[in-house]
């Protein structure tokens, strides 16, 4: 994956949080995934097909996802189901928004949601797989991008 493509994912994440929460996110330095997977409470996975193949996933804590959902809904509190839904929606929005630069041949699947950090979850992504750290408020989350 080219540097400008990675930058596009970063720009989309920054815009997403700015537009939805009115707050800025702190983007960490992307790094290449080694053996250890980064998996938090809930993970939304989007498969990519077409000329570019692979997947992207966003993993975040339940508390963070509930806070984002509460902002969208104008609610003081939301339930766990909202956190699960939220991770899929954020991942879907990021994957869909990058089509502005990647084009319509960048085919995205519906999100698959993973709960917890099961040991047997294996993401068979073609290396190099990039991990982009995201910090919103006090919460850390990660966008993981693996594209051929």
């Amino acid at each position: 994956m080219k540097e400008n493509e990675l930058r596009e994912f970063i720009n989309v994440v920054v815009s997403y949080f700015q537009d939805v929460t009115g707050e800025t996110v702190e983007m960490g330095m992307p790094y290449i995934k080694e053996n250890k997977s980064v998996i938090l409470d809930y993970t939304g996975v989007i498969g990519i097909s077409g000329p570019r193949k692979g997947a992207i996933y966003l993993t975040a804590s339940k508390v963070m996802l509930k806070e984002v959902a509460a902002i969208i809904l104008g609610a003081d509190e939301v339930d766990d189901e909202c956190a699960i839904d939220m991770v899929g929606e954020i991942t879907n929005t990021i994957a869909g928004n990058v089509r502005q630069s990647f084009g319509s041949s960048f085919m995205i699947s519906v999100p698959i949601i993973l709960k917890g950090s099961p040991e047997d979850v294996v993401f068979k992504l073609q290396p190099p797989v990039f991990i982009i750290p995201i910090k919103w408020r006090t919460f850390s989350s990660y966008l993981v991008v693996g594209l051929e």
Binding site: Y16, D19, V20, E89, N92, T93, I94, A95, G96, N97, V98, R99, Q100, F102, G103, S104, F106, I108
Partner: peptide, 26 residues
């Protein structure tokens, strides 16, 4: 939709959609 490419927007409008708004929206 989250799909922000022009082709998808134009396709939807060609089919007969009256509006097209991309996520995230306010």
């Amino acid at each position: 939709t989250a799909l922000k490419d022009k082709e998808t927007g134009l396709k939807a409008l060609r089919i007969g959609a009256k509006g097209y708004l991309t996520k995230p929206f306010s």
